[in-house]
Simulated assay, not measured.
Amino acid sequence: MLIRLALLLSILLIVSSAALYLVTGDRRYPRLVWQVVRFMVYVLLVFGALYLLERYGLVAWRVLV
């Protein structure tokens, strides 16, 4: 649920920043979009790694113990 909320907020931020860039032409907005995209990729990689660890690592450990 938190990941969905973070994705929704980041998509809204990206769309609004892109719209503001098209209206104003200020170079801060594409930089902000890039930072948000990069941050969300890192967050998704961390949660994906935790999911894989939980799904395969801990299940295998429970079988061994």
Rank of each mutant, 00 (worst) to 15 (best):
L44M: 13
Y56G: 05
V63H: 13
R4A: 06
Y21V: 01
L44T: 08
L12M: 13
Y56A: 10
E54G: 12
F47Y: 08
V46S: 06
Y56T: 01
L45A: 11
F47A: 01
G25N: 06
G57A: 12
Y51T: 05
A19K: 01
Y21F: 15
V59P: 00
A60D: 12
S16R: 12
M1H: 10
L53K: 00
G57H: 02
W61N: 02
W34P: 00
W34D: 10
F47I: 07
V23C: 00
L20W: 08
R55A: 12
W34H: 09
S17L: 09
T24K: 11
V65Q: 09
V37A: 15
V37F: 15
M1N: 08
Y29Q: 03
R4V: 02
L12R: 04
Y42A: 15
R62L: 13
L5H: 03
A6F: 12
G57N: 07
V63K: 14
P30H: 07
V23A: 08
L45T: 03
L53W: 04
L64I: 14
G25R: 04
A19P: 00
V23F: 13
L44P: 01
V65T: 07
V41E: 07
A49E: 03
V65H: 10
R38D: 11
A18K: 05
G57W: 07
L52Q: 06
D26S: 14
R55C: 03
V65N: 07
M1C: 03
S16Q: 10
Y56K: 05
V41R: 10
L64Q: 12
L13N: 09
D26G: 00
G25V: 02
R27E: 14
V63D: 05
T24C: 02
L13A: 15
T24H: 02
L64F: 11
R38Q: 12
V15N: 04
I14Q: 08
R4L: 07
V63I: 15
T24R: 10
R62H: 10
Q35S: 14
A60C: 00
R28Y: 06
L32I: 13
D26L: 08
R27S: 15
L7N: 12
Y51Q: 01
S17K: 05
M40Q: 13
L52D: 04
A60F: 06
L53N: 01
S10Y: 01
A49V: 10
V46T: 09
L7Q: 14
W61R: 14
V33P: 03
L32T: 11
F47P: 00
L58T: 08
Y42H: 04
R38H: 09
F39W: 13
L5T: 12
L7G: 06
G57P: 02
I11M: 13
M40D: 09
R28V: 14
L64K: 13
L64R: 14
V63P: 00
V63F: 15
L44K: 04
A49F: 11
L13R: 08
L2C: 00
V36T: 15
M1Q: 08
L64M: 10
S10H: 06
S16I: 08
L9M: 12
A49C: 07
I14T: 13
P30L: 07
S17E: 02
P30W: 04
M40R: 09
A18N: 04
L44Q: 09
L7R: 12
L2H: 08
V46N: 00
M1R: 06
W61Q: 06
F39E: 05
I3A: 08
L50N: 03
